[in-house]
């Protein structure tokens, strides 16, 4: 059994504990980058892989690879043939770039992708596959010039990857929720929704405002669109949240 009196275990548990206390996205990224530096991993990409209903440029949770490297990678559609990425179809446990190179002879386009990485100072890296119970597949992919990818380092980085992915995902989700913007309602839409909120029917609101029930309905429909709501009750909830109406 491998020795546990080294520094990897305690170090990683400390990292996870620190990460669990953070909620702010840029701070989370900073802590993850700092941890990876210790292994000689100076770049990292954390992303959801393209799947049904998920276009590929939507999936970045964190990325510190150079932008010109990413632009070139995207432009040439490397994701579909990168041997390090296609290996994900065959294995669900963490592996290094070097493992892939040793496993099978690479063809010319595959070798070119590896050479291009080398030009950016990325010689080896680790891929930590993360499959969620909703079926979404993600990867945590740090790399560097000459990183420590010893067995214990890999076990540590697997934990670093799994926690980083989850914490980043939650922070981004929260940020998106907090920043959710909506198109402001018109005065008339606000007035109508205010009556909807206290339970008036379209006919009653029409009588109160001296407009037809059909016009009332069209105001409600417009509000629903602006508030990204399927039902009028949810439109009311959203309107209260955004401070458009109050109870």
């Amino acid at each position: 059994m491998s020795s546990t009196d080294d520094i990897y275990g305690q170090r990683t548990l400390d990292f996870v504990e620190r990460l669990q206390r953070l909620t702010e996205y840029t701070e989370i990224c900073r802590v993850i980058s700092a941890e990876l530096e210790w292994y000689g991993l100076n770049c990292v990409t954390v992303m959801s892989l393209p799947g049904p209903g998920r276009p590929d440029d939507d999936g970045f949770l964190m990325n510190t690879r150079p932008m010109d490297y990413i632009a070139n990678y995207k432009e040439k559609h490397h994701l579909a043939i990168d041997p390090v990425v296609t290996e994900l179809k065959r294995t669900a446990v963490p592996y290094s770039w070097q493992d892939v190179r040793e496993k099978r002879p690479l063809n010319r386009p595959e070798k070119r992708i590896i050479d291009e990485g080398r030009d950016f100072g990325m010689r080896d890296g680790l891929i930590v596959p993360i499959v969620s119970l909703t079926g979404e597949q993600a990867v945590f992919s740090p790399c560097g010039e000459n990183p420590d990818l010893s067995q214990r380092a890999r076990s540590a980085l697997e934990l670093v990857g799994i926690y980083s992915h989850q914490v980043l995902k939650r922070a981004l989700l929260k940020e998106r929720r907090d920043q959710a913007v909506h198109t402001p309602l018109t005065a008339r839409e606000r007035e109508v929704l205010q009556w909807v909120a206290i339970g008036k029917s379209d006919d009653e609101i029409g009588d109160l405002l001296n407009i037809s029930a059909l016009t009332v309905k069209s105001h409600v429909e417009a509000s629903k669109r602006k508030l990204d709501a399927f039902r009028r009750t949810y439109a009311v909830v959203q309107a209260i949240r955004f401070g458009e109406i109050s109870l």
């Binding site: 990683t12 548990l13 996870v16 214990r152 076990s155 540590a156 934990l159 989850q166 914490v167």
Partner: peptide
Amino acid sequence: PKTIPLGLAH
């Protein structure tokens, strides 16, 4: 995410 690891995988 509050799941606490007690060590690395062995």
